[in-house]
């Protein structure tokens, strides 16, 4: 477990996600729920994504955001939350992995 982020940043992310939703766009929220080893963003870090791929916040140093945005489109489409694993031991490491050697688990859910 890592220390919670100051809410100043998460506040902006949630507000933006709500504003996108209010504008009628599909929105998903990705949250770092577990980390192992050196991972760039602590547990609780969030990234909001809209149906057009617009994003605010982060769940890594930029290494896995692309993949999360892609998965988020499916979550927005079917409403089913996904638990994603990223790390060097993962088969996806060749495509999207964490250069720092850490592992991270990201929960992606639709904002209803």
């Amino acid at each position: 477990m890592t220390e919670a982020l100051a809410s100043a940043a998460t506040e902006d992310i949630l507000r933006e996600a709500a504003a996108w939703r209010d504008a009628g766009r599909g929105v998903a929220l990705a949250t770092v729920v577990t980390t192992w080893g050196s991972s760039p963003r602590p547990v609780g870090s969030q990234l909001a994504v809209d149906q057009g791929g617009r994003m605010i916040g982060s769940v890594s140093g930029g290494c896995i955001e692309g993949a999360v945005v892609k998965e988020a489109q499916d979550v927005i489409a079917d409403g089913r939350p996904r638990l994603l694993d990223f790390g060097v031991t993962n088969e996806q490491a060749w495509e999207v992995g964490l250069a720092c050697g850490g592992k991270v688990q990201v929960y992606v859910e639709r904002v209803e």
Partner: peptide, 24 residues
Amino acid sequence: SEDVSGRLPEPYQDIFVQVFNPPV
């Protein structure tokens, strides 16, 4: 009180708690 977000200990390890404290 510890200002930490994370999964709860067993047997509730599937439950993720995200703490929103006011800013330091």
